[in-house]
């Protein structure tokens, strides 16, 4: 949202990566122990509830294993991933260039500020019923929903990123007589990357969230559909299994993004560990 927020989080990302090897092994063991402990707590809690309401982790994971052998499982997961990926690509391909272009012009930024501010606060779920009527319970509907919700942070952060460089652009181009195209490619765009990444991070999270929500509420094929369907048939074990699948998808997306960010921002001082001494 603001520049310091970017630096703060990239600094904490850097901070996470400076542990020596033997200490890291110890921490991995501690983390595994914590997860095991959580599993134990879950098992105990499941004793308090009737087995259909809160099945123990063993039952859930066993069911997950069974499901993983069925083609239906993989088609659901595949559809969710595909929908998410396509939606994200659309958001980036449309949101980033448009955002940068708008941000480079003060008039455009001012003109669209109120408009985007308003549109961004409409909960995307509000559009869902309408989309269902128009497009039906299909993948395209979920796609439109995901794009409609996830594009805003990407667009708005790109505008913000361009604002940061805009003043500099005008000055440098004038004083150094740098060709605009060169400046844009080699200075403006790389400088905008950290800010754009903040928007992408949020956009990615929202995109996955809306993909699964759209499937769940709109009965469109995918992991979300499986969750709702299982619950409708009182097959709670299956429901929990798919909830875990959605968590795993979330982890992969978050982890992948984190790794990508570290790669792309390797040059950024806060990632290099040269943050506030």
């Amino acid at each position: 949202m603001t520049a310091p927020a970017v630096e703060e989080t990239t600094a904490s990302i850097a901070a996470r990566s400076v542990t020596p090897k033997p200490a890291r092994l110890r921490w991995i063991l501690i983390q595994v122990a914590a997860v095991v402990l959580a599993g134990v707590v879950w098992s105990l809690a499941s004793l308090a509830f009737p087995s259909s309401t809160l099945p123990p982790p063993t039952a859930v994971f066993a069911r997950l294993g069974e499901l993983a052998l069925t083609p239906g499982f993989w088609s659901a997961v595949g559809i969710t991933i595909a929908t998410f990926a396509i939606a994200l690509v659309i958001c980036i391909v449309v949101g980033v260039p448009v955002g940068l272009a708008i941000g480079a012009s003060t008039v455009a930024t001012q003109s669209t500020r109120l408009l985007f501010d308003f549109l961004r606060t409409i909960p995307p779920i509000a559009i869902l019923p309408l989309l269902l009527l128009v497009l039906g319970a299909e993948m395209e509907m979920v796609l439109v929903l995901a794009v409609g919700g996830a594009i805003w942070p990407i667009l708005i952060q790109s505008i913000y990123a361009a604002r940061q460089g805009e003043a500099l652009l005008v000055e440098m181009a004038k004083s150094y007589r740098i060709p605009k195209a060169w400046f844009i490619r080699h200075i403006f765009v790389p400088g905008a990357i950290p800010f754009v990444m903040t928007g992408l991070r949020l956009g990615t999270t929202i995109c996955l969230l809306l993909t699964i929500s759209g499937e769940l509420l709109g009965s469109a094929p995918g992991v979300g559909y499986e969750i709702a369907n299982a619950q409708a048939f009182y097959d709670n074990t299956r429901m929990y299994a798919y909830v875990i699948v959605s968590a795993v998808l979330g982890l992969i997306v978050n982890g992948g993004f984190w790794a990508l960010q570290r790669r792309l921002l390797r040059w950024h001082p806060s990632v290099r560990g040269e943050a506030r001494s």
Partner: peptide
């Protein structure tokens, strides 16, 4: 826990 989309938990929360 954070990676689970809140909406996916709706059925679970109904159950609980």
């Amino acid at each position: 826990l954070r990676a689970i989309p809140g909406v996916a938990l709706l059925p679970l929360f109904i159950v609980l």
